[in-house]
């Protein structure tokens, strides 16, 4: 028994969601993590706490507020309607936004740890060699933070693949649009299609294991970052 077309569609959709979320978070999280690692501003504590919120909040809290915010009477919903793109609940775009929020700490924290562990010394040396801020960031920070960067990417990607509660609340179970793998498995289980559920679930299990194993192996010699 192989995967049906609908199951493949869910796999493909999930991969697209995870890839897009990872790319967006790389762009957003890198400067944020850099700022958190170096600023002395008092704001850094509240902002670090906000970034970490998705780690402790149940997905239902995020799903609930997203549904209200993106709804026709919510501020985001009013904006998107004004822009002529309608409301975002039950759309792929809506899922991407939710996933970016939901996986934010998984991208920011490893990067922040990596930047912090570099310390000030290499930058001071570079500055004496007349490297500008951009130069220092590109030729020192990024290469030295490579393991952190890799950890951030892998964790974000894997965490988005494993997203369930938020999507259940704002997705609407639309094939090819919002019906991701975890929802497809849930549907199979609820309709007692254990064979199909098992196929997808076992695939997820193996995939997740390999991802984490690969991550640990690649970080082995450098240093293991806090997950």
């Amino acid at each position: 028994m192989g995967l049906t077309e609908a199951d493949w569609q869910a796999v493909w959709l999930t991969l697209r969601l995870a890839t897009l979320t990872t790319l967006i978070l790389l762009v957003l999280a890198t400067p944020l993590a850099w700022w958190l690692a170096h600023t002395r501003s008092r704001l850094r504590h509240p902002i670090a706490a906000i970034v970490a919120l998705p780690l402790v909040l149940p997905p239902t809290v995020l799903g609930f507020y997203l549904l209200l915010l993106m709804g026709p009477n919510g501020p985001v919903g009013e904006l998107t309607q004004w822009l002529g793109i309608g409301t975002l609940a039950f759309t792929f775009t809506g899922l991407v936004i939710a996933s970016v929020l939901y996986s934010l700490p998984f991208a920011v924290q490893p990067l922040q740890n990596a930047f912090e562990s570099i310390g000030q010394r290499p930058f001071e040396v570079a500055a004496t060699l007349r490297a500008g801020p951009w130069d220092r960031f590109l030729s020192i920070a990024l290469p030295l933070a490579r393991p952190g960067l890799l950890t951030a990417c892998v964790l974000t990607f894997a965490h988005t693949i494993g997203e369930f509660g938020v999507i259940l609340m704002i997705g609407g179970n639309i094939p090819g649009e919002t019906k991701v793998l975890s929802i497809a498995i849930y549907d199979h289980v609820e309709t007692l299609e254990y064979g199909r559920a098992n196929l997808l679930a076992a695939g997820m299990l193996v995939f997740s294991f390999l991802v984490l194993l690969g991550l640990h192996l690649s970080n082995r010699r450098v240093r293991l970052y806090r997950l």
């Binding site: 549904l67 209200l68 993106m70 709804g71 409301t87 609940a89 039950f90 609407g172």
Partner: peptide, 8 residues
């Protein structure tokens, strides 16, 4: 709930 919230 989807209909009540106006999302549908």
């Amino acid at each position: 709930q989807f209909t009540y919230s106006g999302n549908a």
